[in-house]
Amino acid sequence: MSLESAVPAGPARPGAIAWAAQQRVLIALAALIAFGALRYDHFLGAYNVLSVLRYNSMFALTSLGMAFVIMTAGIDLSVGTTAACASVVSALLSSYGLVPGLLGGLGVGVAVGAINGFMVTRMRILPFIATLAGMLMASGTGLLLAHNQSVSVSYDTAFIWLGQGDVLGFPVPAWIALAAYVYGSVVLNFTSFGRYVLAVGGGEDASRLMGLPVDRVVFWTYVQSGVFAGLAGVILAAQFGAGQPAEGVGWELFSIAAVVVGGTLLTGGVGSVATTLAGVLLLGLIFNVLNFENGLGWISLSAYWQSVVRGVFLMAVVMAGSGAARRALRTA
């Protein structure tokens, strides 16, 4: 049976479109893993796998928060600079121990997320503009606190364990990201808040007519996005041993790309936590594959060319998903 004949009509259309798009990222991820395993030695070795998971855990967290925001038909451009600012605050507080450093970074995320949510829900500012202002605010605050330089973390406390430690042979940042995605999946699929998020993204006016707490839902999605970005900043400081106020540039683009590649619609109303994680892994493995390719010596790609290749690959996956969506619409 063809895809076109298998797509149901009527109310199931959004789910069918999302399904068609989401399968592309899973297929692409499996194909990329198979390619890397066959072409490169040690690609599936413990060191490479754990390194990829440890580093990409930060992007996984920012992408998870972004996914919920996009499901409401919003956008959050501040996740990268929020993480950078949080890394500075965490580094400054790391000398007091793990908990103060962690709470400091989370506090930054809550503050930025609450400001973003307030501007969107109470001041009725477009999410793009509101979070752009939040991005600039977080960036400037981080640079001011750090005096425009990296801030070393304290190695006399357990703070660096959050970024460099392992539990049961698995990186602590990866455990944190996994716990966050379990939380996100439960919230989206089994709670009223998750249903409200999708309903608001599917139609804000209709949601208001049904009596749903639209403003409250939107506000908390931005706060949640800020919390995950702040947590990513804590891991950034702990993993690299310094708070980095200039870091985070382009993180919002990576997060948006991962969410979209994972099948979440920018128009809102449809989304998945699991395939968002698949999108993060796909984009992270593209960089990993390019590094292995450079190591073979057959080609030598600079960071600029690696960015071009990643963009082309991303465009191919998105176009494949868009093609499936168009076919589903024509046959519905």
Rank of each mutant, 00 (worst) to 15 (best):
L132M: 09
G45C: 13
V25F: 10
L143T: 02
G241K: 11
S150R: 12
H147C: 15
L38A: 12
A111F: 03
A21M: 13
D76Q: 13
V308Y: 07
F219M: 07
A199Q: 03
C85E: 02
A31V: 13
V197G: 04
V151G: 04
G226V: 03
I115C: 10
V99I: 14
F287V: 11
A21E: 14
V227K: 00
A274Q: 00
H42W: 15
M119F: 14
D156Y: 12
W251M: 14
S87K: 01
A328E: 03
G203S: 15
G268L: 05
M58V: 03
A174M: 07
A246M: 13
R310Y: 14
F43C: 12
G184N: 00
M66P: 01
L285D: 05
A199C: 08
A73T: 11
F128V: 10
V186N: 00
V200E: 01
S207L: 04
I33F: 02
A84Y: 05
P171A: 05
V49C: 08
P127Q: 02
N48C: 15
M315W: 11
F228Q: 00
Y155I: 09
L209R: 14
A328V: 15
A180V: 00
T62K: 02
D76P: 06
A28M: 09
I70C: 07
L50H: 14
G279L: 04
S57W: 03
T121D: 07
Q164H: 15
V214E: 04
G268W: 07
G45H: 10
V79G: 01
A246E: 08
L285P: 07
G321N: 10
S152R: 14
V312H: 01
G262R: 05
S225A: 04
S154V: 10
Q244P: 08
A174D: 09
Y40V: 11
L281S: 11
V317Q: 03
Q224F: 00
G269H: 04
I286F: 00
D205W: 15
G268S: 05
